[in-house]
Amino acid sequence: MPDFRGGGAEQVMVTLAQEIARRGFDVCLVVLRAHGPLAVDGSAAVHQHVLDARTTRAAVSGLRRWLQAWQPQVLLVSPSHLGWAAAWAARATTTRVFIREASTLSAELAALPWTQRWIRLAAEKYLCRNVRRGALSHRAAADLAHCLRLPPDRICVLPNPVISATLWQRGAHRVAQTPAALDPNRPMRYLSAGRLDRQKGMDVLIRAFAALKPRPGDRLLIAGEGAERPALEALANTLGVASQVEFLGYRVDLIDLMLEASAFVLASRWEGLPGVLIQALASGLPVVATDAPGGAAEILEQGRWGRLVPVEDVHALSAAMQALRYERPGQPDDAWRQRYDIVHATDRYLDFMDLPYRNGDSRPCAE
């Protein structure tokens, strides 16, 4: 993976590494760069190897040397733009490469200049043509198959492992402690989380919050960092809601924030499978999400577990946020939970990589 910056793809890779290591495998997280706030649980005995490469291309030679020296059984790569480098580096080794597509490929390609789009698509099609791929939702898998002209059976759907037993128990406790009758005049704490970039649609969210004509006690809490933070702060100021929009930066206590919030809002323009939306539902929060390319509709089961609104529709999003004022906390059913439970979802990844569930026999990796 690229680094430890704390995005959803990186967090899932760390969670997988820790859970697979707990099952007896020797696991190493290989990163291009060492920077970022994301921490690895030391109790899981996960090794780390830093390639110290500024670009994906520069990482190829270092990754090849590491693969030749340690000969791991498998190499799981995420996000997918690193896949071509891993496939190229793994030539003439016994390592099997697997790519985890963390977003929706067509939307990612559409956001690139045409030259970069062509290069990315060529690399995906030709350098990675023999690599097995996973996508995070059925919608993203269909999109990936269409973009790369692959048979659908070449792509495995891999739900994010993001629900721990502790999170589910804390969410259930929160639901049980909520009064049967909610005060519709209570102050609302709307929470959202994600990188501050165009994909996550925080500009749409701020406009929707302003359109609510929020009451004095209402707050919009935005957890995450990114290049668009100054522009988003300026937008909140222009719309007259700067005093009620709080930019929290990257937070390691996101679950605690969810348990203290009134509702969760996801305004993304596209996604893979938003883990924060899954965690918000597990914590018992009422939610609203955009029906963006990716897995939000799949998570919500087409609106069964939360509200879906069109992408970039400020008025629909604002109306849905207003409706959340009257909704009690609740959790989806147990079948839904198991799909994203860390243990069950990790089983799915091990199946994907043709590895046993326990007592792995891969070789140790470098410190």
Rank of each mutant, 00 (worst) to 15 (best):
G275K: 04
V276T: 07
V276F: 03
L277E: 02
I278H: 05
I278A: 00
I278V: 14
Q279L: 03
A280K: 03
L281G: 03
S283L: 03
S283K: 10
S283I: 12
S283M: 03
S283N: 07
S283W: 12
L285S: 01
L285V: 07
P286S: 04
P286V: 08
P286N: 11
V288Q: 11
V288A: 06
A289I: 04
A289W: 10
A289C: 09
T290N: 07
D291I: 04
D291K: 06
A292T: 00
P293V: 05
P293L: 11
A296G: 09
A296E: 00
A297I: 08
A297K: 00
A297C: 04
E298T: 00
I299R: 01
E301M: 09
E301G: 00
E301A: 13
E301V: 10
R304A: 12
W305I: 04
R307K: 15
R307N: 10
L308E: 06
V309P: 05
P310H: 09
V311C: 09
V311E: 01
D313K: 11
D313T: 03
V314R: 07
H315K: 15
H315Q: 15
L317H: 11
A319C: 05
A319S: 08
A320N: 07
M321N: 02
M321Y: 06
A323D: 11
R325C: 07
Y326T: 14
R328Y: 12
R328F: 12
R328C: 10
R328D: 06
G330E: 03
Q331D: 02
P332E: 11
P332I: 04
P332D: 09
D333A: 09
D333Y: 14
D333S: 04
D334V: 13
W336C: 00
R337P: 05
R337S: 05
R339D: 08
Y340P: 01
Y340G: 00
D341E: 13
I342C: 12
V343H: 14
V343M: 14
A345N: 05
A345H: 08
T346G: 10
T346S: 06
R348L: 06
R348V: 06
Y349P: 01
L350F: 13
M353G: 02
M353N: 07
M353Y: 12
D354I: 10
P356R: 14
Y357Q: 14
Y357S: 07
R358N: 11
R358V: 14
N359T: 09
N359P: 00
N359E: 12
G360Q: 05
